[in-house]
Design a protein around this nucleic acid. Structure first.
Length: 271
DNA sequence: CCAGACGTTGTT
DNA sequence: GTCTGG
DNA sequence: CCAGACGTTGTT
DNA sequence: GTCTGG
């Protein structure tokens, strides 16, 4: 992870859930991606907070914006490498030139209903390759999860100064070591920001490296075994981004599994 | 000093 | 832009 | 992240 | 095998 997720919630619900000052998903931001199969290079809604240009002393304004998934650093010559910068490691976030500035000044929250993780089978193969079984990881109470993100502005040097499309705003999802249980899917997972840390994560005046490090360290690491998160196998059709039906989030019965292990016990499921 | 990279993941 | 490597 | 392509020529 | 597209 985190290279694929689901978000189908109404924008109005997100505005309420994240206490957004105004929904700016109009005009250039109108092309927003809401689906059960959100992939890199698309433009899903993201929550961010910025100081007001006209009044820097006023409290920052929180908005919902459609940003491109795949961070393009401001110094990039072109936007072509973006598809690879979909994740940023929490451990090195403050050190990497591509992310350091954004980590201090441009943090955001990525709302998701679930994220997908593919379990590579140790026993079952298909076409000579290990079988892969996707799981959906979601909040046990079906609430919206907020993943830690960082975003960046990139100005297209080839575009005219008066071209409103010359600015690309893009983001990456912060990842961390997978917690116990979820590590049977994958060794990494997105950093889930709990409700009580959302304000701090978004606060643009919190721009000290040590404070950001403390924030990263304050994130709980027992969400799965603690029961806040659940995970269940889903249809392998989620592997094709063209599939976007609501049924992609439905659990698949054990009979359709092969070589898949239970996340809590490690025991083989199904056949 | 300049040149060149700047990122993560999974798989072998 | 800024860091790393040579 | 996975799925799917992976190419050039000539002609319209 | 590796790159591109979504």
């Amino acid at each position: 992870m985190c290279g694929r997720y689901a978000l189908r919630r109404d924008l109005d619900d997100l505005v309420e859930e994240f206490e957004v000052d105004e929904n700016t998903l109009t005009g250039p931001d109108a092309d927003v991606t809401l689906s059960t199969n959100v992939a890199p290079t698309t433009t899903p809604p993201v929550v961010l907070e910025r100081f007001r240009r006209d009044d820097p002393d006023a409290p920052p304004s929180r908005s919902l914006r459609a940003l491109r998934w795949g961070l393009v650093p401001s110094w990039s010559k072109d936007a072509s490498g973006a598809a690879r910068m979909v994740n940023a490691r929490a451990e090195t976030l403050l050190d990497k030139p591509a992310f350091a500035k954004a980590a201090l000044a441009r943090r955001c929250l990525v709302p998701v209903d679930a994220w997908y993780e593919w379990q590579t089978s140790a026993s079952a193969t298909e076409g000579g390759k290990p079988r892969k079984q996707p799981f959906a990881v979601a909040a046990a109470d079906s609430s919206v999860l907020s993943l830690a993100g960082v975003y960046e502005f990139w100005k297209d040097p080839a575009a005219a100064e008066d071209d409103p499309a010359r600015w690309l705003v893009s983001f990456a999802v912060v990842t961390t070591a997978a917690e116990e249980g979820l590590d049977r899917l994958h060794e990494r997972m997105p950093l889930v920001v709990p409700r009580d840390l959302r304000d701090a994560w978004l606060d643009p005046s919190l721009d000290d490296a040590e404070d950001v490090r403390s924030l990263l360290d304050a994130v709980p690491r027992d969400l799965f075994l603690g029961g806040t998160l659940t995970a269940h196998p889903v249809s392998r059709r989620v592997g094709d981004v063209r599939n976007t039906g609501a049924d992609l989030l439905d659990p698949v019965p054990p009979a359709e599994l092969d070589g898949v292990v239970d996340l809590r016990t490690g025991e083989l499921l199904g056949a």
